[in-house]
Structures are given as structure tokens and as C-alpha cells.
Simulated scan of single mutants.
Amino acid sequence: MRSVIAGLSVWGLSVLLYAASDGTGLVQACSADYQNFCQGVKPGGGRVVACLRKNLAELTTNCRSMLHEMGPAEGDTPAIPVIAPVLPGSVLRDVSYGDDPAQQMDVYVPEHPDHAAIIFMAHGGGWEFGDKSAHNVVDQKTAYWGAHQAIFVSANYRMLPQAGPLDEAADLARAVAYVQAHALTWGGDPARVVLMGHSAGAHLVSLITADGAIAHAAGMQPWLGTVALDSAAMNVPAVMQTRHLPLYDRAFGADPAGWAAASPYQQLKARPVPMLLICSTERAVSCDSAEQMAAKIAQLGGKVTVKPLARTHMQINADVGENNEETATIATFLQTLGVS
């Protein structure tokens, strides 16, 4: 039996564990709950799972989620939709990580996922438009990382006027926590997550990276690093106090305290995970913002790379995954994180 298990992929092993009637697949997600509620229950015959279900309302979020993924017990009505493991080489679309219709993601699983790294993408759009399935967000990226056997996740989030940047960052952090909680069902590794965002999305993943309270509140686990694709809003107060586009007023309002709260530069108080900041030399403010952010990261002892590129703001997003300098720069950065 041990030799059979050792030969399974991560995806195959996760499916086997979820199907186990004695609840051994719940060990990681439900160990604390088992100690609290079911310590006297002898494993086997589904007894541990039945005990956990009886205490469902008192369980941790990860444990409840794992139980629901196993499917409802006979006669049960699941409180949330049951999500089956994604088959290798498939796409799981419109996965809800919250109650709002905007809180959804698409999960692109490669052909041979096994302890796979996960690239989590936040689209741009001035904090008020954009979509996870836009061609310039996913097409080249999913082809590239799929060929490298990495999982690619593209997430939507609430936007203006429904939600401001702080709420948007909280949504994305919640989405990352969901990805980490479900990574094993996709053949992924919850510890091998890299955040990536373009434009407004680059600002939001940078804000999550700079402000640890956002990640902590959402239940995020540690991740490997962050790639910001051409954000000019690393220092929001500096942007708001100089000539700027009207979209910044719609996003950040007129309150200086609100500017600081939504500013990666101001919220950065401790060494973050390694960051790659790619900026367009066709937008001088973008590279200036990246260099200022990088200087503070370095001052705090963090690892950061700034890569100016003579490419437009839109090219820096759409062309990731093509055979170009930008993709090579990202690949080199990911290799330093242990992601090929």
C-alpha cells in the first residue's frame, strides 16, 4: 500500500484521501478540530467524519471546507457548493470565494500537476473595470505557465463604485487564502504561490504584500513572492499631490488618511516577500514609483528587482508569456523563488 501511495501524483493522492471513509484525508485541515471534538472516536468506518459533521458549526473554516469537498453525508444538505477536484489539463471557471458575484476566480490546471506552483493573477482596470477572463490577462500567461506545469489562477474582485481599493485588496487576499486552502485538490502546493497583478491589480497585490494585516485578516498563508506589472501607485499620497488622472480621484478620494491607508509605500513597515517591479519607461511616473518602493524595501532588508522596459503599459500585461525580455525577467525572478 505504501508503494502505491508513493507513486501517486499530489493530485491523485489528494483525491484518494478525500475518498477515504476513515477521514485520513482530513488530518491536515482538521487536526485541531479532531482534538477538540472527536479525540475519543476510533478511526474507521467513517466515524471520525461523522463526528466532525455533528460539530460542523464549531469547526475551523479549512476543516468545514474539506468536509464539503468530500461531499455531503447521506441526507445532508451542504451549506456551500461541493467542489470536486479539478482534472489535470482542465479549467475550473467561476469558482466563488465569497458571496458577492464579483468574488470569483478561474483555475487553469496543467496536464501534469504535482506539487505545482501557483501563479495568482489580479487584473487591472483603474480599480473600476476589467475581468479575469480578458484575453490580455490570461491567453499568453496560461499557455506559458501551463507548459511549465504551474497552476494559473485569474481572479475577479469587487470594484468601484461598489468597493474601494482597500476592499478590493481584501477581496484578493481572501481569494488567495481560498486558493491555498484548495491547492491540494488541484495538484498544487499552497506554499508555492506567487502573486501577480497589472496596473491597478499590481497596486493591489503590492498593498497586500506591504500591509501584513490584510493578508492576516483574510487567512492567507505565507507565499513566495510578488510580481507587480507597471503600477504607478506605489506611493498614493505622492500621486494625489501631483498632477494625475481623474481615475485616481475616483479610486482614492480626497482624504489624505485614506491615501496613506491604501498606499503600499506608506504601509510597508517590515521586510516583505521578494518583489519584482516591472515598469514602462514610456510612463516616467511608473518607474519613479517602482524605484521609490524598491529603495524602501531594500532599506528594510528585503529582496527587490526593478526592471524598466521600453514597452507600453498594455504590452507589459498582454505580452507576458511570449518569448521576450519581460517573460525572461519574470522567469529568472521565479527561479530565485524555487519556481521553474
Rank of each mutant, 00 (worst) to 15 (best):
A261T: 09
C279G: 11
A257I: 00
C279K: 09
P274E: 03
T281F: 02
S280N: 03
P274L: 08
Q267N: 05
T281L: 10
G253S: 04
V285K: 12
L277Y: 11
L245V: 03
G253Y: 06
A284C: 00
I278V: 15
G258T: 08
Q266S: 13
M275R: 03
R250S: 10
S263Q: 03
Y248F: 15
Q266Y: 05
G258Q: 14
L268Y: 07
Y265C: 03
L277R: 08
I278G: 09
L245F: 12
P264E: 02
P272E: 07
S286T: 14
L245Q: 12
K269Y: 00
R243M: 12
Q241C: 06
A262T: 06
V285W: 10
R250M: 10
T281H: 04
M240C: 09
V273D: 05
A260N: 01
E282C: 00
V239N: 04
A254G: 01
H244L: 07
R271K: 15
M275C: 11
Y265P: 01
Q267G: 02
F252M: 03
A260W: 01
K269F: 00
Q266N: 09
Q267D: 02
P264S: 02
W259T: 04
L276R: 09
A257N: 09
Y248I: 01
A261L: 13
A270M: 04
A261R: 14
L268P: 05
T281Y: 02
S286Y: 13
V273G: 02
D249C: 01
M240E: 07
L247H: 02
L277M: 12
S263W: 06
L277C: 08
P246G: 03
P272D: 05
E282G: 13
H244A: 10
D255N: 15
A270E: 14
L268E: 06
A284Q: 13
R283D: 13
T281W: 02
A284D: 14
R271C: 13
A251Q: 05
G258K: 09
V273E: 15
Q241L: 13
A254Y: 02
P256I: 08
S280V: 07
L276K: 10
L268H: 06
G258L: 07
L245H: 15
A254W: 00
M275G: 03
Q267T: 12
A257E: 12
E282K: 14
A257G: 09
R250C: 00
A254E: 13
G253P: 05
M240Y: 07
I278M: 15
L245R: 11
A270G: 00
A284L: 11
P274K: 07
T281I: 05
S263L: 04
P274Q: 06
I278S: 11
L247Q: 11
T242A: 15
L276D: 08
L247N: 05
C279T: 11
R271F: 01
A260C: 01
A260Y: 02
M240N: 07
Q267A: 06
A284T: 13
